[in-house]
Write a protein that binds this DNA or RNA. Structure first.
Lengths: 163, 163
DNA sequence: GGCGGGAGCTTGCTGGCGCAACTGTTGTCG
DNA sequence: CGACAACAGTTGCGCCAGCAAGCTCCCGCC
């Protein structure tokens, strides 16, 4: 008892028809959507994970981010990021660098090869996102989609840092 | 070059601001949302994967489905399903059964324990879905969410069975 | 000023899943 | 009828990611 989920045990407010449709469609779609993006990216020798790393690094001030910050943005555990970077370092896209300011910190820095890989893949990836997702929606749906996921994302973030 | 994605290489139609917002919010949210559901389900000793198996079996005619049909609905590879069922059989929620009609086929059948596990978890899971997702949206947003993901899902299905 | 708590990263272990290869079964076509 | 393609499921292998433990290093507090 007193779980975060309980309180509903008394009276489970089920989903109405519309909610049900939204939920089922979402659950059944999300996985396939992800693998569709992954498949399209293999052409460039990248995974979605790799691609996101490249994007975040390319947007960072010195093309570099602290591991922990990067991990948070990628929603990845520390160990997960360590290993993903292992691969990307070996591929030559990223360089590890010790921070001068805080010697605990490891910086992940985008290499020229990494920037090139991103530039090569970006058009294809955007096209993929359009083809599978964006271009299937009208302006209004895109607008609402943004609202939905910022709202949900905010909610999740709010909950997780209460403790 | 000569990729399936190409045709866009000539002129990469980038995402406008709204599309960008929708896409980023989506990507950054989806993972956390999934793990939120998973965390809430651990309370009942289930994963999202287990839960979905239970749901689909409980909705099937004889509380049973062919492995391949189940795999398709779960968007899971054959081997993936084999192993997931291994766990669920050991947990006593599902029974394997040879089909009389087609001896290649293995049926996955819901046990009474499985039905009970589902009934126990369902209210909490629905509450979780409400808390993290549905109740953060208004009626219209829910409506549009259903539209979005049925449209995208249809698109994905259409593409994948062209070959 | 040094000491304890906590932050940041890595490593060993484990579990889940996809791919490819294999077995057994069915269906089809000459 | 007999051969061959296609289908259903399982198994070996490898990859990726999370958790827990361990190391180094920072910082606040006595």
């Amino acid at each position: 008892m007193m779980s975060s989920v309980s309180g509903s045990e008394s009276k489970p407010r089920w989903l109405d028809e519309n909610e049900q449709r939204a939920w089922r469609a979402y659950v059944e779609c999300v996985g396939d959507l992800f693998t569709a993006f992954e498949n399209d990216l293999t052409e460039f020798g990248l995974t979605m994970g790799d691609y996101q790393v490249l994007v975040y690094l390319s947007e960072a001030d010195d093309q570099a981010l602290r591991m922990c910050d990067l991990a948070r943005r990628l929603q990845l555990s520390p160990s997960g990021l360590t290993r993903r970077l292992d691969g990307m370092v070996k591929a030559g896209w990223v360089r590890r660098q010790n921070s001068q300011i805080d010697r605990r910190v490891m910086l992940a820095e985008l290499t020229d090869a990494g920037r090139t890989a991103l530039d090569d893949a970006a058009p294809g990836h955007v096209a993929s996102v359009r083809r599978h997702l964006i271009d299937r929606l009208d302006r209004h749906q895109v607008q609402v989609m943004a609202e939905i996921f910022t709202a949900v994302g905010d909610g999740l973030r709010k909950e997780s840092d209460v403790p």
